[in-house]
Design a protein around this nucleic acid. Sequence first.
DNA 1: TCAGGCGCTGACCGATCGGTCAGGCATGCT
DNA 2: AGCATGCCTGACCGATCGGTCAGCGCCTGA
Lengths: 181, 181
Amino acid sequence: MARAVPETHGEILAAAARRFAVTGYKGTSLQDIARAVGCSKATVLYHFANKEALLSELMAPAIAVLEALDARLAGTTGATAQEIAGEGFVDLAVRFRRQIALLRGEFPDLLQQPAFAHVQQISERLIAAFAGNSDRPSARIAALVVLAGIAETCAEFIDIPDEELRPALLAVVRRALEPVT
Amino acid sequence: MARAVPETHGEILAAAARRFAVTGYKGTSLQDIARAVGCSKATVLYHFANKEALLSELMAPAIAVLEALDARLAGTTGATAQEIAGEGFVDLAVRFRRQIALLRGEFPDLLQQPAFAHVQQISERLIAAFAGNSDRPSARIAALVVLAGIAETCAEFIDIPDEELRPALLAVVRRALEPVT
DNA sequence: TCAGGCGCTGACCGATCGGTCAGGCATGCT
DNA sequence: AGCATGCCTGACCGATCGGTCAGCGCCTGA
């Protein structure tokens, strides 16, 4: 018989997700998380090697989906790339709102960590896709406005239902992006 | 004759602006700023009562312009409000790119500080204006995407010339906002 | 000439951070 | 019964944070 094992690991993960989404990664201490779970800080570090490992495990599913989107983007150009990137990213951002929220303002720093090794390049390819692979500065500017705007909006509207948020975001994307010439 | 006074105060302010824009407010220590200036941390605190005072003095001009925009917004509705908010905010964001950059991800926290007492309400009125004073969720979502997207984009493109950034942003705004019905 | 103040500094403070470690307690296997 | 192992903890560590303070050298007005 398996020992009636406590679910502390999962509880810590869940509490960390909630706290990170509100106060950010740097802004949340291991003490905060331990308090939310009702255990000691040492227990948190018993279940996770360090704070970074906690973050990695939390972000893994979102990053997997992001990589899948990147794969679907390969070889596309122009309006097709814009459409795939738009639908794909809106979908991802809505589904992983909490994970996006915890990145707020810490994106550049967190990209340095090994767990996010490829994310930097992927986000650059995403911007290029939003720009319809155009080199025009105005297209790239529009792409960044859309990308960053979606992310921030998803992090902000953390409680409204998916089926309300998603179509509204998609409508904005389709209006905002520069048409490919 | 006035004593040949050192310009340390201004140098600290300038260095702080540069450091804050790169590593954020919380992410920049007084030690960092002192090192950039070439003085001691105690000197920084001799010229400024505390870290918050440094931030306040840095943000004051931007907040003044924001308040002026808010005043111009009073009494406007629909497409007029959208146009004034769009032009006004793009202009502000481009001019005060460094100040916007230092707010990245710390906006909610920093709003608590006394120096930003009114900014919360002003930004809510700005969003309402971007939405053309419509209550429809999709209009408010589009408004937030535009507002946050502009801010983030300005913080990101810190080096390209104003005359390239401004028209591109204005074009995105005009495309992206939901037309008033 | 000299007292006073301005600009500045090193040393120090308490708090908090992420992380380590030896050990306690309960459980299951032999 | 006795040992081993898994889960958990309090105490502790060095680093860094924002901030304080006594005092130093130098310039200036009287």
